[in-house]
């Protein structure tokens, strides 16, 4: 699967992680990947076990149960230049996130793209490029480099 331009939202300003997750989830809804119920499942999953991955990225996705809301595989991207804190109240450290990847995975179709994202984002300066990107195309290009 490939990342689509209309699944990318740039330059968002949010104050809570739930807002960030809802943005990523709404992209998935608008893209016809999931129904509304999935967003709540994403929030629930993040409360259960954080989807903060380190290196300023988070990959909110639904719970096992939430899989029933998925219509097709999709990945959305929300860029939050000012950052949003993904930590829980009892976490000692701030978990700042600048790029959120919303994920709806069916039949492991998303794994290839996810693995590209992982390889790319394991270098924090690459995440900085994503966080600074000025257009959706730039983000798509950046992530595609990895496959090559």
């Amino acid at each position: 699967m490939e990342l689509k331009k209309d699944m990318i939202l740039l330059n968002q300003d949010v104050t809570t992680r739930d807002q960030a997750i809802r943005l990523a989830g709404q992209l998935l809804v608008d893209g016809g990947c999931v129904d509304e119920g999935y967003i709540d499942s994403m929030i629930a999953r993040n409360e259960d076990v954080s989807t903060y991955m380190g290196n300023f990225i988070a990959i909110p996705h639904g719970t096992d149960e939430g899989k029933k809301h998925i219509k097709k595989t999709g990945i959305s991207v929300v860029q939050i230049p000012m950052g949003v804190d993904f930590s829980n109240d009892d976490d000692a450290n701030e978990q700042l996130v600048t790029v959120v990847f919303g994920i709806a995975g069916l039949n492991n179709e998303h794994l290839q793209l996810l693995s590209q994202i992982a390889l790319f984002c394991s270098d924090v300066s690459n995440v900085a490029k994503l966080a600074d990107a000025q257009s959706a195309d730039e983000i798509i290009d950046l992530l595609q480099e990895v496959g090559k």
């Binding site: 719970t63 994920i103 995975g105 693995s115 390889l119």
Partner: peptide, 15 residues
């Protein structure tokens, strides 16, 4: 291992 086997663990495993 992660909660649903959908995202986090797949990323870690790739790396």
């Amino acid at each position: 291992a992660c909660d649903a086997g959908m995202g986090s663990s797949a990323m870690g495993a790739s790396l």
